[in-house]
């Protein structure tokens, strides 16, 4: 704080502090506290607010875990998000390594353009593109049928559709942190390992992955949080069997009109995401400052 005023003077330094404080309080703290407050109150008629019935209760949280359907969807969202994260990592890591260490400048420019241009279109439209591709009478089934790989059209919507749509939607969030961290690895280290006889698998296991750990952790945390909080992909590409927890939250707010229960559900999701971030950091033995970089 002292260094801030020393660098920018009391006027500008104070303004920066004030803006950061306003942002933290107004945009982060206050909404979350309001959500907490909502989640701990019962859903009441307007005339009951302020009466004896209006007191703090854990009923909304208990409702979530005693409803077997909601509980199942919650846990499915957790592991399906983990699966999305893992799949995205598996798809992205070779690409990130190729971009960082093997690609020629020209190849890299082409690949980056091909990866980034689709992201100029908004997420809903991009997901709609997958909706068309994966449709029962869509191009994917047509191609597979034409090639004789499948005998009759496959219903892709559901778990597969959601997985494909999410992996595609979040690939850049995984790619860039990993690419950044691999590109800082000195190429001579890879050559030295190869020179000492290491196989490709061992080079990655012992040299590249440990070096890129912070980037991998960052990418995984981003992807997991985005996947767990995703709404568009499950709504468009899912089926009744692949409902996402965010859809239930949405329903409490906008269909069921029970904001209190919606807030409780959203809070549980928030806490889950925070736990996953902390666990990931612990597992990868990186700290928050590394991730922020």
């Amino acid at each position: 704080m002292a260094s801030l005023t020393a660098r920018f003077g009391p006027g500008l330094g104070g303004t920066i502090l004030l803006l950061v404080g306003l942002w933290l309080i107004g945009m982060v703290l206050a909404p979350n506290l309001m959500m907490l407050d909502f989640s701990l109150r019962p859903n009441l008629m307007p005339n009951q607010i302020g009466t004896d019935a209006d007191r703090y209760t854990l009923a909304n949280f208990i409702a979530l875990f005693s409803d077997s359907v909601h509980r199942a969807i919650f846990f499915k969202t957790v592991w399906a998000s983990a699966l999305v994260t893992l799949t995205t990592l598996v798809v992205t890591y070779p690409l990130a390594f190729w971009l960082a260490k093997i690609a020629t400048p020209r190849g890299m420019a082409l690949a980056l353009v091909a990866l980034i241009i689709p992201f100029w279109i908004n997420e809903v439209l991009r997901t709609l593109a997958w909706y068309i591709l994966l449709a029962f009478n869509g191009p994917l089934n047509a191609v597979l049928l034409g090639l004789g790989i499948i005998a009759e059209p496959v219903r892709w919507f559901g778990d597969f559709g959601v997985l494909a749509g999410m992996v595609y939607a979040y690939i850049l969030f995984m790619l860039f942190p990993i690419y950044n961290s691999i590109s800082t690895l000195e190429t001579a280290q890879i050559e030295a390992a190869r020179n000492l006889g290491a196989s490709t698998v061992r080079i990655h296991r012992r040299i590249v992955i440990p070096h890129a750990k912070a980037g991998i952790a960052t990418g995984c945390v981003f992807t997991f949080m985005l996947a767990a909080g995703s709404y568009v992909a499950p709504a468009l590409l899912g089926s009744p069997g692949s409902r996402w927890f965010t859809e239930i939250i949405y329903n409490w707010f906008f269909e069921g009109g029970n904001w209190n229960r919606g807030a409780a559900y959203a809070l549980v999701l928030l806490v889950l995401c925070m736990l996953v971030v902390l666990a990931a950091l612990r597992v990868f033995r990186v700290n928050l400052a590394d991730v922020a970089k």
């Binding site: 000195e186 001579a188 280290q189 050559e191 030295a192």
Partner: peptide
Amino acid sequence: TSMIFQSLALF
């Protein structure tokens, strides 16, 4: 053969 790199390339 075994090589010693200019940057040493220690891990």
